[in-house]
């Protein structure tokens, strides 16, 4: 297994993570180390094993369709880096 710089670039783009060249270089090396270590999992026979996505055997947790209080709009917007009226504001999505 080998993570090339291009792979790191592709993955960084998926994750919307701006990386500089130095980081790309460093990460591809370090991730190779880690992935090499992780390779050990290939030796485990998992052919008859079910995956554990949830460690507890809890099922069917639901809530009733009953309204609860929303945040006051002021609080909802309180942390926003940019707002306009009671909207959040972001750089133009479609250009």
């Amino acid at each position: 297994m080998n993570i090339s710089k291009d792979t790191v670039k592709y993955v960084a783009n998926l994750a919307r993570l701006g990386l500089n060249d130095e980081e790309l270089e460093k990460f591809s090396l370090q991730l190779n180390d880690i992935l090499q270590y992780i390779e050990q999992l290939k030796e485990v026979d998992i052919s008859k094993i079910a995956p554990t996505a949830h460690v507890l055997d809890i099922k069917n947790v639901k809530r009733k369709d009953e309204p609860s209080a929303s945040l006051p709009v002021k609080e909802a917007l309180n942390n926003s880096p940019q707002k306009e009226g009671s909207f959040f504001k972001v750089p133009k999505v479609i250009e």
């Binding site: 790191v8 993955v11 960084a12 994750a15 919307r16 701006g18 991730l31 880690i34």
Partner: peptide, 23 residues
């Protein structure tokens, strides 16, 4: 905006784990 914000906002270890996890 996304890339710059996340690139500057996260530290090295966070970025490393995000990359590994995304991968």
């Amino acid at each position: 905006m996304y890339k710059q914000t996340r690139g500057k906002g996260f530290g090295l270890e966070a970025k490393r784990r995000i990359i590994l996890g995304t991968y």
